[in-house]
Design a protein around this nucleic acid. Structure first.
Length: 151
DNA sequence: GCCAACGTTGGC
DNA sequence: GCCAACGTTGGC
């Protein structure tokens, strides 16, 4: 099983909304590298750190679990949707998503500042300068470290 | 709100 | 296939 970090803007789709929904299609990813991770490497049962960007503070707020294989992202075909993509055709969709199920919200937040200060976690992609990828792999040791700090 | 970083687009 | 222009992300 693999571990991931998935980003969401706090005021766009928050951990609290996710907690109410229990599960959601992780739609709206419009970056090929992030898409490829979801399409090819994510497996059912993988665990994902749920990260808020552009929040106070930005950081890890909760945990999600992958509960489906990748399927075409329905929002790419919705003309009124902000994620509509005119280049994508139903016969050959461009964008894919997986279903995420809510696991838990952590009792506290692991802020980006904390991640950068931690000797183990500072190698995480999210801590790197200029990082913009919204789906990134997380090593087992980093995942265990996050769980240990937050539980 | 600013701006650095970086992915994407399109002209050539 | 190069690269300048442009748009977006996201920390601060």
């Amino acid at each position: 099983m693999s571990y991931w970090l998935i980003k969401s803007e706090g005021d766009c789709y928050s951990i609290d909304k996710f907690c109410k929904d229990k599960k959601t299609l992780w739609t709206g990813i419009r970056n090929f590298q992030a898409r490829n991770y979801m399409m090819k490497d994510m497996k059912i049962g993988d665990l994902c750190l749920f990260y808020h960007s552009n929040d106070k503070p930005s950081g890890v707020y909760g945990l999600a679990k992958v509960t489906s294989q990748s399927v075409p992202d329905p929002t790419q075909f919705l003309e009124k949707d902000e994620h509509f993509d005119r280049k994508s055709k139903k016969e050959k969709p461009l964008w894919f998503c997986v279903e995420m199920s809510f696991v838990k919200k952590y009792p506290s937040v692991l802020s980006l500042e904390d991640i950068k200060k931690d000797t183990v976690l500072k190698v995480m992609q999210v801590a790197k300068r200029g990082n913009r990828l919204s789906v990134t792999p997380v090593s087992t040791s980093c995942f265990k470290r996050v769980e240990k700090i937050l539980n």
